[in-house]
């Protein structure tokens, strides 16, 4: 099975406290630590497990600049055989539709049976997978947390509300967005990353994929972020202050008063 997994480089929210810049229109980006979007690690792990069972290749692809080399190599160290970087000045400022348009170009250059994305990325859009599938006219299912292989088709479970799972049959080729918890992504050590450091990662530009530069990037974006801001806070919580002992004493009173103790 030939599998393409779309991955995104994102600020690692566990490693950063998000703060506004001094102008108050963007987040402070200077010291951000980046990593692979959490959902994408599950997608790559799933792809590797499928290929381990039935053979084939896993290719990881991202839309971004040279800084993305690191995250592609991380996913290759997990076991993805190939990496692919979609890089062009014209791609900067793309909205989700732009990203899907670019990824479509890459899908059409290959011969994939299955395309995986994460269910959502740092901006919580959850849009790219479904858009890509519709552009390619391929069947799609989102929030997939179980995959069983069949002949020319898959049986998949989708996560829906309340812990329920919606089972579907879907024909190949198809696009799936993967939800966290579907597997346990393997650990990647420094040694693993060193092993793939020599592998060449091909780059494709808009021209290489026959993409009209006006349909992507800033120029093609129908959805534009104007600025960042910290919303005016409501009353919020009553904050308990003082020494740890004082805080605990107050907390115990509150617990007692509310039936907690």
């Amino acid at each position: 099975m030939e599998i393409l997994v779309c991955v995104k480089r994102v600020p690692d929210s566990a490693e950063n406290e998000i703060e506004m810049n001094s102008e108050g229109n963007d987040i402070e980006r200077d010291d951000l630590v980046y990593s692979v979007n959490e959902w994408d690690n599950y997608a790559v792990e799933e792809a590797i497990q499928i290929v381990d069972k039935v053979g084939g290749t896993v290719t990881v692809v991202t839309v971004g600049d040279e800084d993305c080399d690191e995250i592609l190599r991380r996913e290759m160290a997990m076991g993805a055989e190939k990496g692919l970087l979609l890089n062009d000045d014209a791609f900067a400022g793309s909205d989700c539709k732009g990203i899907a348009t670019i990824l479509k170009g890459a899908v059409q250059k290959g011969n994939y049976d299955l395309v995986l994305t994460g269910a959502q990325a740092d901006e919580g859009a959850g849009a790219v997978g479904g858009m890509l599938a519709a552009m390619l006219d391929l069947p799609y299912a989102s929030l997939v947390n179980k995959i069983e292989l069949g002949e020319g088709k898959l049986t998949i479970g989708r996560e829906i509300e309340g812990g329920n799972r919606e089972m579907n049959e879907i024909t190949l080729p198809c696009v799936l967005s993967i939800q966290t918890g579907i597997n346990e992504p393997r650990y990647v050590g420094i040694r693993g990353i060193r092993k793939v450091s020599g592998v060449e990662i091909p780059e494709l530009s808009a021209a290489d994929m026959g993409i009209d530069a006006a349909s992507v990037g800033e120029a093609g974006a129908g959805v534009k972020k104007v600025d960042y801001f910290v919303p005016e806070k409501g009353e919020g919580a009553e904050m308990l202050e003082g020494s740890t002992d004082e805080i605990i004493a107050k907390l115990i009173e509150i617990l007692k008063a509310n039936g907690g103790l």
């Binding site: 989700c96 539709k97 899907a100 269910a119 959502q120 919580g124 859009a125 959850g126 849009a127 790219v128 997978g129 479904g130 858009m131 599938a133 519709a134 552009m135 799609y140 299912a141 989102s142 929030l143 989708r158 996560e159 829906i160 509300e161 967005s177 129908g222 959805v223």
Partner: peptide
């Protein structure tokens, strides 16, 4: 915005030639 919209809405926007924004 829920697990159904995440499944249906992005693709619908493409088929309608419309912009898409979620959540």
């Amino acid at each position: 915005h829920n697990t159904f919209s995440m499944d249906c809405a992005p693709g619908l926007s493409i088929k309608l030639g419309a912009s898409f924004v979620s959540d």
